[in-house]
Amino acid sequence: MSADQTTSGGFHHAQDKLTFLLSLVPYLIQQTQVSVHDAARHFGVSEETIREAVLLIAVSGVPGSDSNYQHGDLFDIDWDAFDQNEIIITQLVAIDDSPRFSAREASALIAGLQYLQSLPENVDSAAYSSLAAKLARGASETPSQVIVSPAATNESFARVGDALSRGVQLEFDYRDSRGQSERRRVDPLRLDSDNDDWYLRAWCHSRRSVRTFRLDRIDALHVTDLAIDHRPSDVHLSDSLFDTSGEHTTVVLEFRPEALGLLGEFVPEGTRVTRSGDMSRASVRVAHFHGLTRLVAGLAGVARVVDPPEARQAARRWALDALASYPDATSSETTSSETTIANA
């Protein structure tokens, strides 16, 4: 997975390229001799990226006393070995150790570790603290305070994780957003999270395709003894949890520009967003109005459905049905003492 971040195309930003050079040098020195292939695998980059970087390192160095670069002031490699795709640094200049982490890099890793603390098979809190302390000590400045509470997990989580690691099938009742419940048998492939929500990516035997299941919609979970038919390595999983490209109903949403992030998977990356006065608009595809209705009901005053009329009506109906359960509005709209954050 992590290798996806640096694909064969190499790095896009100069800062990433520089970091790569500063990281590759100490690695090559420590390895003494390493093949282009192994170095590429270790860093999760293409062999071409490694070759280009080695060629650049081999002609780099420090300016001498007369402000010219002399042969003795440059890195050098064993060129014959390099022809055989082996890397050996024969002369080094200025740097030989790994660079420190920046404060932001260290705080990103520390916050990531905090989030992972609730995962099964994870380190205990003492091991975590020592790892966080090590990162802080390895940073050039005190890491800033970006703190994340451990990801919430429910009782299904550990058992799904167990099935994943043992490669066995799962059975469970899955109740979709419309309240329809059905027994499913699946090959678990991966557990994905999105902040506090967990999703099981799995090959569903009843649907004969890959499906995404919200963990909090799973009930009566049973870990079977049946080996999985589809291994995670055989199935390509995209990074986005839901694929809406095949859906046929198009709806137009209107929302406050800053609320785009709150619409999540409903507005996939790359969707065209237009401006209409103070508001933004986007056309999105949905399978049915049900999820959409919930979305806009939870974003009162922030987002609404504009088109088609049936979708608008569904949203209105949803809210009216809910209002019918409350005694008639005798209490005027109080805004007095809500418990809210930033009571400034």
Partner: peptide, 9 residues
């Protein structure tokens, strides 16, 4: 970038 530095080890 933190990962690259980590891999340098």
């Amino acid at each position: 970038r933190a990962l690259l530095k980590l891999r340098s080890l």
